[in-house]
Design a protein around this nucleic acid. Structure first.
Lengths: 251, 251
DNA sequence: CGAAATCTTGCAATATCTTCCAAGTTCTTC
DNA sequence: GAAGAACTTGGAAGATATTGCAAGATTTCG
């Protein structure tokens, strides 16, 4: 492998995990630690990463919460697993609505191979595909809700009112036996429009959301056709989901 | 195989994989490494790829975000100057439509101090402010036109049909005494909607666009209220602009 | 403070690059 | 259609760059 490719891989890896040890990186790129050290030197002089004792750290952890959508490492592995599992449920060339939120973002990352038509109100998702130039991506209009990079407001609701999709891939702020919740009325309004517009509704919910309340109630459990989650979920809610005839898929 | 065909194959391959070794490429096109080196030299001088030790790398990897807007250094200084000059024309707290295109992007960068309300169909502009979290930004919906990160199509046109703004900051592909031109019907449709929606229309046009034809005609010169440009412009078009009562501002 | 880990530096082995040349190919001219 | 010019190609020799290792310096942590 060549120097530049190695360096890019290291950079990409660091974007995901924020910090990595030399051993980890050296294994990742299959080169000696010396070489990784030199690479880190180059990247450091470029300013993108900072060397530390024993490894390296991303220089600019993009604390703007907008990019945070893409960079959030909280439960990264779980979200990756959910993303991969959810992507398997999508048929090739379907029209797919993708909700905002980090979990859905990870689904999007696994979706390219299915060449879906994407409809989204999430700027991070839009950016993901925009540069790729392989898929048709429809962006709903709306006002940017800064913390998350989501488009909200009447323009967004109307946009989803006008379209029809095969699948909606949704996220949420919490799920209990009572139903599915989210944190903001603006988001809920749009999520309802998304659900209306789709023939099939998939909720991607990592285990940390199970049993958690959130501010506003989005919908009943039976609105979901499928819930994709990771290994460890509350059996109580699992039972409630089964009772509502929701299929549960585990990443 | 012809030299050009080889080079195209190499380029295509690199678009797919971003990095490639000499051995890999030499096998791909069935030529010696010497020949591939020479081909890479040609491609490098064309600017599409960069040679590296051991192989080559795509110059503008698509995986990056729309940093290309910021990265496009063609006439960078002129565009910066135009951006600053144009921003001076905006009153505080106005509602401003911002067109896609690198020139408008630079205007946007100078606009934050005026705390305008932004309306745009450009993803780079949206990203610029999304992270900043200081301004209200409305994004038109639409389908992503990949090379530029512009939102196009009926959703975009409708969005601008529904709103009213104080100013529209526009760019174009070329300007002659005959009128203002742009390169794509899809873009023109939206630009017309933008112009309709705004009380005042400012065109930001760097000198390289003066006298240049482009594929489709957007509008007459007198549709513009102000044209912002850099120092060196064709006197003939300048005269035509004056005749149409267009104010000309020089960055 | 001392042990363990990590870093820096110098170096030899390896890989790659540049430059040059001969052979082959295409184009031009008559 | 043949002779010669101009260009392209593949390879070789020497120059340069990269890599992994090891010895000694530095940092970390109990």
């Amino acid at each position: 492998m060549q120097a530049e490719e190695r360096q890019k891989r290291i950079e990409d890896h660091l974007v995901k995990v924020e910090f990595a040890s030399l051993a980890e990186l050296s294994e990742l790129v299959d080169a000696s630690e010396s070489t990784v050290r030199r690479d880190l030197g180059v990247l450091e002089s470029k300013g993108s990463v900072r060397r530390t004792h024993g490894g390296a750290r991303l220089e600019n952890p993009k604390s703007d919460e907008f990019t945070f959508s893409a960079r959030d490492t909280h439960q990264l592995d779980e979200k990756e697993a959910i993303g991969a599992a959810c992507a398997k449920l999508i048929q090739p060339n379907q029209t797919v609505i993708i909700d905002a939120g980090t979990t859905c973002y990870h689904v999007a990352r696994h979706l390219e191979a299915k060449t879906p038509q994407i409809i989204t109100n999430s700027l991070p998702v839009a950016n993901l595909f925009a540069a790729a130039n392989k898929l048709e991506v429809v962006v709903s209009g709306g006002v940017i809700y800064p913390r998350l990079g989501v488009l909200v407001g009447p323009l967004a609701v109307e946009a989803f009112g006008k379209i029809r999709a095969d699948v909606a891939i949704m996220s949420c702020g919490g799920i209990t036996t009572e139903g599915i919740m989210n944190s903001h009325g603006l988001l809920i309004e749009i999520q309802r429009a998304m659900i209306q517009a789709a023939r099939k509704v998939i909720f991607c919910i990592d285990s940390s959301k199970f049993g958690r309340q959130s501010i506003s109630r989005l919908c009943d459990l039976d609105v979901a056709d499928i819930v994709v989650t990771d290994k460890t979920v509350s059996p109580e809610i699992l039972k409630a989901l089964r009772r509502s005839e929701v299929e549960v898929v585990s990443g």
